[in-house]
């Protein structure tokens, strides 16, 4: 391959020459435009060129959503644990430790209370970087804690999903978190407290088939993968090529599965407007 190396300039040597440190540039996975990292962060991880909504850390997302200085985490809850002694290529306890180190979170779901346009809310968000945002006992418990905080304070709940589904390493315990979280949401509904579910890339499996699809209003970010079954499994079952854009936000909107698609930069205002109306509060003021 030496002839190719001669033709293609080496990226790292160029970086050394110009003295630009690593991590300053990010390539959009969709349109492959090279983006200046700091500008990308200003755009909330949305490509300036093609509007592709890249994944964003849960904590960063919530920081951008709440009114500045208004929010804090709910009290600590249980952490994931290798209850069933799951045999894997790597120990589950090691996977947990690695995920905690990588994300700086104790769990794949974070939950905070704060205000959005001065409206008091609890917001939960899945951290996809934590074992694919998968739901085990600790995620279920954290979600119920968020619901309980809403019940106690009579305030709405918002949840950002980003999850591959139930966590295999906790087996049936994970599956039952679908029941646990859905039952808690039924209580919230029983008290007429709004629940807005925001689906982000990806929302699939057991999380899609429980708390994600139970929103009084369901919003999706553009271009997110949303569905129950995995695409490979579907392809193997039906033995035909999947249609273009299958299981995308746009596909769901077209089939009546969600209420709306909202760009990340507009989510804060949209959520504020919806919640103010659902809770009979005065219209929010949005800076022009």
């Amino acid at each position: 391959m030496s002839w190719l190396e001669n033709l293609v300039p080496k990226v790292d040597t160029q970086e050394k020459k110009t003295g630009v440190p690593e991590g300053v540039w990010t390539k959009c996975p969709k349109c492959e435009t090279t983006l200046y990292q700091r500008e990308l962060e200003r755009q909330m991880n949305v490509c300036l060129k093609c509007n592709h909504h890249m994944r964003i850390a849960a904590r960063k997302r919530l920081k951008l959503l709440f009114d500045p200085g208004s929010f804090s985490d709910l009290p600590p809850s249980i952490e994931p644990e290798d209850i069933i002694k799951f045999k894997d290529t790597k120990k589950y306890s090691e996977r947990i430790a690695a995920a905690q180190k990588k994300t700086g979170e104790t769990n794949a779901l974070i939950a905070m209370r704060g205000t959005i346009h001065e409206l008091d809310v609890v917001v939960a968000a899945f951290e996809f970087g934590f074992m694919g945002g998968s739901m085990g006992a600790a995620v279920g418990e954290r979600f119920v804690q968020a619901v309980n905080c809403c019940l106690k304070n009579k305030i709405p709940l918002i949840c950002f999903s980003a999850s591959g589904g139930a966590r295999m390493q906790e087996a049936l315990i994970s599956l039952m978190q679908m029941a646990k979280t859905s039952a808690a949401l039924a209580r919230l509904a029983g008290e007429n407290l709004p629940y807005i579910s925001v689906l982000t890339d990806p929302t699939t499996g057991g999380v899609a088939a429980s708390l994600s699809m139970l929103g009084d209003i369901i919003i999706a970010e553009p271009g997110a993968l949303i569905g129950f079954a995995g695409q490979r499994v579907i392809e193997q079952t039906v033995r035909q090529t999947l249609p273009e854009g299958f299981q995308s936000s746009e596909f769901l909107l077209e089939h009546g599965g969600i209420d709306m698609i909202v760009s990340r930069k507009d989510l804060r205002d949209t959520l504020g407007r919806l919640i103010a109306k659902l809770t009979h509060q005065a219209a929010i003021t949005v800076a022009a």
Binding site: L211, I234, T237
Partner: peptide, 26 residues
Amino acid sequence: GAYPGIDAEERGQSEAIARNIFVMST
């Protein structure tokens, strides 16, 4: 398990499962 098909996804397999769990709980 629930049927993994194109039509099932189009008609909201996730929602159908979630709704049953939700309603059965109360």
